[in-house]
Design a protein around this nucleic acid. Structure first.
Ligand SMILES: [Mn+2]
Ligand SMILES: [Mn+2]
Ligand SMILES: [Zn+2]
Ligand SMILES: [Zn+2]
Lengths: 137, 137
DNA sequence: ACTCCATTTTGTAACCTTTACAATCTGATA
DNA sequence: TATCAGATTGTAAAGGTTACAAAATGGAGT
């Protein structure tokens, strides 16, 4: 927990119990949860938690570069505290969003087709390793 | 217009004036419009047009592989009738979504990290060529 | 051309995530 | 301990999408 306290302080984000819990949840669950999933999970320990606080904290962490947003589909933002660059797979069988470590040539490029590139997001759709294994190939 | 009639018939989609207009709009405007943009544009000619028809037709065209959905951000799907594979840039200055023709190694791969890949979406954020030119580099 | 009927279109309301806002609470500082 | 800017909470509003039932329509068969 000391770890998250330090992270918040280093980024000049005022420390609150809610922020510590949200940050800890994101750091210990790399499942790319939705705001609603974070909310319901942390509510078990803190029933007074507000969903607005989830969104406020997400915004704050994002502003400080501690969080990335994944937009696989409309009406469902997912969040990722692993900020080193990687791509993602949405499994059409189990619905999980899975990290894909890739050698993507565009992460190094600053320009493509004359346009300036600031961020690269690689979204794959398919079937994850586990689901392939269960149902046969 | 004969062109769009033919496309619908070839895919076994019942021909209606609304579907012809929507298909034509998408084919002649590669601006990656939102449902709302399609709706307001086509309403100029057909004020009785319903937004539900826009969504129904989008679904139908998508089911037949004639349309792709871009999810740059939640709460705003954009649509693309150019179905050969390419990546996209969202310009943070002008908001336009621009095609990026790329040599992406993942479009040829069927497997990555043991997972089966069915679709590859490359989303870039940055500043487009035009906006770079206007304000200086 | 007419009839028929499955399909489509339309209009409205519901749905769901996200955002806005005001009142209350909290915690760092003095 | 008193203060007060900032954080949290609860509620409502916003905005895009989907569900649904009634009305309209396209096209096959006559
Ligand atoms: Mn990830
Ligand atoms: Mn495109
Ligand atoms: Zn899976
Ligand atoms: Zn631009």
């Amino acid at each position: 927990m000391e770890k998250y306290l330090k992270i918040l302080r280093e980024h000049g984000i005022k420390v609150t119990p809610q922020r510590l819990e949200i940050l800890r949840f994101l750091d210990t669950h790399h499942t790319h949860p939705t705001a609603d999933e974070i909310y319901h999970e942390l509510r078990k320990k803190n029933p007074a938690l507000s969903k607005t606080t989830i969104y406020n904290t997400i915004q704050s962490l994002t502003d400080h570069g501690l969080l990335h947003t994944l937009n696989f589909r409309t009406h469902e933002a997912r969040f990722d505290s692993v900020i080193n660059h990687h791509h993602h797979l949405l499994c059409s069988e189990c619905g999980k969003v899975i990290d894909i470590e890739v050698e993507c040539p565009f992460t190094k490029e600053k320009i493509a087709g004359g346009h300036r590139i600031d961020e690269v997001h690689g979204y794959f759709r398919g079937v994850c390793k586990d689901c392939l294994g269960i149902g046969g190939k």
